[in-house]
Design a protein around this nucleic acid. Sequence first.
DNA 1: GTCTATAAGCCGATAGAC
DNA 2: GTCTATCGGCTTATAGAC
Lengths: 203, 203
Amino acid sequence: MTVMARPGIPTRERIISAANALFYNNGIRAVSVDAVAAKAGVTKRTLYYHFKSKDDLVAAYLAGRDQPNLALFRKWFSEAQGSLPAKVEAIFRHLARSARHPKWNGCGFLRTAAELANLPGHPAIKIGAAHKKKFEEWLRATFAEEGIVEPLRLARQILLLLDGSFAVVLLHRDPSYMETEAAHALIEAALPVRASRRVRAGR
Amino acid sequence: MTVMARPGIPTRERIISAANALFYNNGIRAVSVDAVAAKAGVTKRTLYYHFKSKDDLVAAYLAGRDQPNLALFRKWFSEAQGSLPAKVEAIFRHLARSARHPKWNGCGFLRTAAELANLPGHPAIKIGAAHKKKFEEWLRATFAEEGIVEPLRLARQILLLLDGSFAVVLLHRDPSYMETEAAHALIEAALPVRASRRVRAGR
DNA sequence: GTCTATAAGCCGATAGAC
DNA sequence: GTCTATCGGCTTATAGAC
C-alpha cells in the first residue's frame, strides 16, 4: 500500500484521492478506513478530523467523480464526426476502449448503488442518482435541439443502454457488448421521418 | 432474526434459503456467516460442514436463483399476447411490476458481480455470467425462429436494455424506466422489411 | 451431522496529548 | 490538525465432543 505523501496537496484532497483508488478498485465494504488512511499517508484520527464517518467519506469519493465523468462524455460526443447517431455511438466506442484497460471496473456510481442497495437513503446513492440525472438531462437537451419528437423518452432509452453496458461488460469482462450499435438503431428509429431511410436488411 | 426451523426440509436447503434472503436483501459482504447460520437455525459449525467457505455459500446462493429466474422470463414471454416486440416488451412490463414491490432490490447476479468486481474469477461471478449467457442464448434462438437477420446482435441489444433496467431502476427506485418501450423499438428496427412499417411520428 | 467454544485478527470510531 | 494508543464488537474459520 503506497503512501501518497505529496505535501503540496491539501490533506483532505489526498484522502479523497486515496479513497477513490481503493473504493473504485475494491468496493466500499471491502475497504477499511484504516486502508484509506494508510494509502493517504495520514493516521486514522486525521481522516476522522476531515470526515465525520465512513459514509461521509464514501459520499465524497463519488462527488469527486461527478464532474470529471460528465465532462468526459460531453468531450467524446462533441469531438466525434458525423450525424447524431454517430456522435452518440462514439460515446459507447470510447467506453469500450476504456473498458479494455486492465484496471477498469465498471461505473463507480452503479457499483456503489448495487452494494449499498439495503440503504436506500444513503448519501452516496443520492449523489449517484443526481449524477445520472445530469447525464440524462444533457442527453435530453441535446436530442431536443436535434428535433427529436420525444427527447426525454429517447434520453432514457440511451441511458438504459449505457448503464446496461457497464453492468454486462463488468460481468462478462467483454467490451464487445458496447459495440452492438444499439444506440445508433434507437436514435435512427426516433429521428423525424424526413431523415434518410437507409437500407436495413443489408447488414 | 427469525429462525427458519422447518424440520422437513434438509439442512443444506434451509441454509441456502436463509442465504438467499439475507444476501439478496443486504449484499454479500454486509452479511456474516453467523447471520446466515442463525437465520437457518443451525450453528456455524454445521454451516461449515455443508459449505467449505463463505465464497462457496455465495456461489450456492446464486446457483439457486438460476433456473427459477430463467423460467420466469420464459413464462412472461410465452403467456403474452401479440407480436414478437409485444411479447418481449411484456418481460419489461412484468419486471416493472416486480420492481414496485418494497423488497425488490435489483438483479442478484449483477449486484454480486458489482460487489465482487475486485475478484474477477470468483465462483459466484462465473455462475452469474453463465446465467446471463443462458438468457442471451434463449433470446437469440427465439429471434432466429422469428426470422431476425442478426439474432445474436439483437439478443445482446435487448440484454443491455434488461440489465440497464435493473441498474437504473435500482439507483433511482423508479420502475418507470422499464416502460420506455426501448425493446419494442429495437426489435421493430431489426424486423425483416416485409413486416408492417407503422406510423412513427404519431406518438 | 450437529453441538459448544474459541482462535486470531480486523472493524469503525474515539480519547487525550501536543 | 496531526499524532499515539486503544476500545468494544464483529469477522471467517476451526478444534474437539458426542
